[in-house]
């Protein structure tokens, strides 16, 4: 019995999902630290990634493949580290790393503007805010609630099964030819990451067809701004009362 006969695609997927579940369970904080569990988890995680990578496609060229593999590995591994690290400060830094990976993926996928915007908005603004809050709130970094998880096993199984289902359905969907959504697509996205005038065309689309949505988003931002200020002032006064 040869390897391909044993490793049918279905079994491969099932194995990868199981490995992912066990790996997540082992790596999640569960109160007591154990070096064996950690290394076993890391190994299983690599196996799971490898298994799931088999569900991917070969791309046009080797260089392209290398670029995509790099950025996506950065994104996924640092995303896993964000979830699994005990210290929230490290979590936030891993998240920043993940964002870089995601930006790379977006760039490869042909969304130049979004790739840059993700870095600017998240890494530049949101993440800094996170860290700021984190420093304010939790200087110790090793609180008991950072060392335990809520229902790690069930959650890991749920997420792994979800991942399996998504992989399966992505496979199903890709068999169908892509159908244009609109009867007459306004602008076709260039497959080339460095397509000419990408941002200009995106801007035209955003401020043409989606102008009302942009206005609504602007109003939403304003409301969120005012709302957060209102909540802050109230909770601070409440905190003052508590202090008294």
């Amino acid at each position: 019995m040869t390897l391909p006969e044993i490793l049918t695609p279905g079994r491969l997927l099932a194995g990868a999902v199981t490995a992912a579940a066990i790996s997540l369970w082992l790596l999640l904080p569960r109160g007591r630290e154990s070096g064996v569990a950690r290394w076993l988890g890391i190994l299983l995680g690599i196996a799971a990634l490898a298994g799931l990578a088999c569900a991917g496609r070969r791309l046009g060229g080797l260089g392209e493949e290398a670029v995509f593999l790099t950025v996506s590995l950065v994104a996924v591994v640092s995303g896993a580290a964000t979830v699994l690290t005990r210290s929230p400060v490290y979590s936030a830094i891993w998240f920043a790393m993940c964002l870089l990976g995601v930006a790379g993926v977006l760039l490869v996928l042909g969304a130049q503007f979004l790739g840059v915007a993700t870095i600017v908005v998240y890494a530049g603004a949101i993440l800094v805010m996170f860290l700021f809050v984190l420093m304010l709130a939790q200087p110790a970094g090793l609180a008991p609630y950072d060392r335990v998880s809520n229902e790690p096993f069930l959650s890991a199984v749920t997420a792994a099964v979800l991942l399996g289902l998504l992989t399966l359905s992505i496979g199903r969907l890709s068999a169908e030819p892509a159908a244009p959504l609109a009867a007459e697509p306004a602008v076709t996205v260039a497959a080339d990451p460095l397509a000419e005038n990408h941002v200009a065309r995106l801007g035209a689309e955003l401020f043409g067809r989606h102008l009302v949505s942009v206005e609504a988003a602007g109003v939403l931002l304003l409301v969120a701004l005012i709302g957060s200020i209102a909540v802050v002032s109230r909770s601070e006064s409440a905190g003052l009362e508590d202090a008294r």
Binding site: T82, V83, P88, A143, N150, A156, T158, L166
Partner: peptide, 12 residues
């Protein structure tokens, strides 16, 4: 999926 695991398990 990773985000889901995190939001379900992490207490912070």
């Amino acid at each position: 999926a990773l985000g889901l695991v995190g939001i379900l398990t992490r207490r912070n």
